[in-house]
């Protein structure tokens, strides 16, 4: 089996383990900058959403129009309020978590998201927008640098594009079983991504992240005049706002799954590898994937 070109350097390590170069410097820097940007963008985005926690489909939508999705608080009986999340005609009581949440003094207040989920913690649309747009530019610059490096050092094609063998239904099914059994490679097999990992990373890198940028741009009235095709692409400004929210939720789901996987697969080794670039692997190949890895 050939190992990845990146993964050729043997370094001194305790017996039975050796350290190999796993992540390029460009990958590591862009990864952490991206983590910072996505965190700030998600949290300042929730702050912005507090100002009008409802989503519509089409060009327009405001109070008098029926939202497709809504977070709010309503009075049940005199003096009793409840928080709710409404999707179409289905309503879910979310008192304490969404819509009606503990405020700074601990008492329940009308607010779509709790304080810990927003930047800043207190309500400020103006500050939320400042954080959001500054980090949006940083995010775009960082993602562009990532694409550029990924194409130049072939990271995207070599490490992330699934091989034909990996895309066979059988290989994907086996990988799903491996994930469900929490079976993670520790040896040579840890030096390349498995099919589910590749598909997840790629769908974020070439799917979700560009969708966030494009739907974000579509909400800008200035950009809509410059590039009307953006509005058509998403079926209207309010649709774009809704897609922005859905894609952000999907991104949040990815982050949660990603973090769980890092913890299950060995958090110290994994996080260290993303900082120093060097991953410790065991000498014996304890877990060879069923499908042939990349040639």
């Amino acid at each position: 089996m050939t190992i990845l070109p990146m993964a050729g350097v043997d370094l001194p390590a305790p017996a039975g383990r050796r350290k190999v170069h796993r992540h390029a410097l460009a990958t590591r820097i862009t990864h952490w900058l991206n983590a910072l940007c996505v965190t700030v963008l998600l949290m300042s985005g929730l702050q912005i959403f507090l100002a009008h926690p409802a989503l519509y489909w089409g060009a327009s939508g405001a109070d008098a129009d029926r939202p497709a999705f809504e977070i709010g608080a309503e009075t049940v009986t005199v003096g009793v309020q409840r928080g709710y999340v409404r999707l179409g005609s289905a309503t879910l009581d979310t008192t304490g978590a969404l819509g009606l949440v503990p405020g700074a003094d601990g008492d329940l207040t009308e607010r779509a998201f709790p304080r810990w989920a927003t930047i800043p913690g207190w309500r400020s649309l103006a500050l939320g927008r400042r954080w959001h747009f500054f980090f949006a530019w940083l995010f775009v610059a960082n993602l562009s640098a990532y694409y550029l490096f990924g194409l130049i050092n072939k990271h995207l094609r070599r490490d992330l594009a699934p091989t034909r063998a990996q895309l066979r239904p059988r290989a994907i099914l086996e990988d799903i079983v491996d994930h469900l059994r929490l079976k993670f490679p520790k040896g040579e097999a840890a030096l390349h991504y498995n099919p589910l990992q590749k598909l997840a990373y790629l769908s974020v890198i070439v799917g979700l992240l560009p969708t966030m940028i494009l739907t974000g741009l579509t909400m800008s009235p200035g950009m809509d005049a410059i590039a009307p095709w953006l509005v058509d692409l998403f079926g209207g400004r309010q649709s774009a706002r809704t897609v922005h929210f859905i894609a952000a939720s999907a991104l949040l789901l990815f982050v949660v799954v990603h973090l769980v996987m890092v913890v299950l697969a060995g958090p110290i080794n994994g996080v260290r590898a993303m900082i120093t670039g060097k991953l410790a692997i065991s000498e014996g190949n304890d877990h060879e994937p069923h499908s042939a890895p990349q040639k």
Partner: peptide, 9 residues
């Protein structure tokens, strides 16, 4: 289309 900073149009 009138776009409010709050998010509605």
């Amino acid at each position: 289309r009138h776009d409010c900073v709050e998010g509605w149009s």
